[in-house]
Design a protein around this nucleic acid. Structure first.
Lengths: 241, 241
DNA sequence: CGGGGAATTGAATACGTTCAAAGGCCGTGG
DNA sequence: CCACGGCCTTTGAACGTATTCAATTCCCCG
């Protein structure tokens, strides 16, 4: 975990460091399961580790058949879908250490398109194989239940803070606060944050225009809550956000 | 399923009919599990059935210790929580046949307060007992996984259509459309709908004022998409919503 | 047949959007 | 190495939509 307080504007696409397995959202099922005297290591047996993707690469397409869960061990990605009017709509961002693809379990098809925002690394877990194992190992099934419930709670928390926000400034505050919170949950630097997505993407996600987003960021800066320079944001006062 | 096309304004609190078990969100785990030659019937062994609550009753409180899942077999309820500024915020509505309390699994505490909007009936399922059974019955564990993934997908779908909507009218359209859709999923009348919650509750939920909600409803009526009289809404054209 | 809360309707204000223009960053190529 | 061009971001001003506050109507319940 390299996190210098004040790093100079990064040259080209520097690959960010990997998250520790211990801090990853997938850890509950990766953790070796001991049943009786036999140990079962999902990570060893089922997981495709350190799969690299480049900025802009599509990890899965909307409506694709559901195959695998993805853990983002480095980098970040955006989740988008086509709304009824044919427009693209950003529905979420996945950060380092977070899980993607779980929302495909119910229907068997990915409901969104996941695109890497920067050069990133994935752990790929074929879900049907995981279920096969879980059928034989009740403790593993319990871990999957735990994983799903944590994840669903996680999603709900994010959505709720955005739904609660009424004004544009509140939405932006909620967004930054969310990102910071999620960094904390993964034991990452939550004071100096790099927003790898474009302003347009953030604005779309928040349901405001990029112009209002820009204005809100300026306001937050004037109120000494953040310092924003390009994609880097320094959080001065997380509590007041 | 009693659903007269045009019922006169109901006298007092008429208890609406129960949902069929087959159409309930809890059915995946209530369904008897046959393993080898022994049948395991959760519904018989763990479920507290047909527990009545009155309009305004609180089913569980925010921050209460998580004990049970609740299936609403008749009636409806609102989910609310206290936001940071101390205000109450409606985060969702539970309709007949839907599940409540799952969002407490991850943390062990209910994140919201659930209040009955009318006289209602519940099936109560103690969750730790369910898990105990699942530990012994892998197929049951699979059903729980299925239940959670369906539910999480369900939630996401609802939230997303509201997030996507930008103008007030779009939000109201999305809301009504949602409710109708959920009635369809449960094999209930989706043309004549009774919104048991107050306008204030709906507006709060949608993040608009009750005045704009009222105006939007009037507009939708002028556009011949719905007919609204008090809490009853007749949907004329679901597709165009 | 009132009384009271909820819902609707009406005008002034505030906020976000839209359209337009200027500024800044980065990669490319000279 | 510096200059250019394009794209993303920021800033500016007019417009449109939602909010606010106030008044009225509707409807449920005594």
């Amino acid at each position: 975990m390299t996190s210098k307080a004040s790093m100079p504007p990064q040259k080209s696409r520097t690959l960010s460091s990997h998250i520790a397995c211990r801090d990853c959202a997938l850890y509950p099922v990766c953790e070796p399961t001991t049943i009786g005297n036999t140990a079962f290591d999902i990570a060893e047996q089922l997981l495709l580790k350190k799969h690299p993707v480049k900025a802009g690469d599509i990890i899965y397409h909307e409506a694709d058949r559901f195959e695998s869960l993805y853990a983002l061990t480095s980098g970040s990605a955006k989740e988008e879908c086509l709304s009824k009017n044919g427009e693209k709509q950003i529905v979420g961002f996945k950060l380092k250490g977070e899980l993607a693809g779980q929302n495909a379990i119910a229907t068997g098809h990915y409901p969104h398109t996941l695109t890497a925002l920067e050069d990133s690394t994935l752990c790929v877990l074929p879900f049907h194989k995981l279920l096969d194992s879980a059928n034989a190992l009740p403790p593993l099934a319990m871990q999957i239940i735990k994983l799903l419930s944590i994840d669903s709670h996680h999603e709900a928390k994010i959505r709720q803070s955005l739904m609660t926000a009424k004004t544009a400034e509140e939405k932006v505050r909620a967004f930054i606060s969310n990102i910071a919170q999620r960094h904390i949950e993964r034991n990452l630097n939550s004071v100096d944050i790099r927003l790898s997505m474009s302003r347009t993407d953030i604005a779309d996600y928040l349901g405001i225009t990029k112009e209002t987003l820009s204005r809100s960021l300026t306001l937050l800066q004037q109120k000494d809550l953040i310092e924003s320079s390009g994609k880097n944001i320094h959080i001065i006062d997380l509590l007041r956000l």
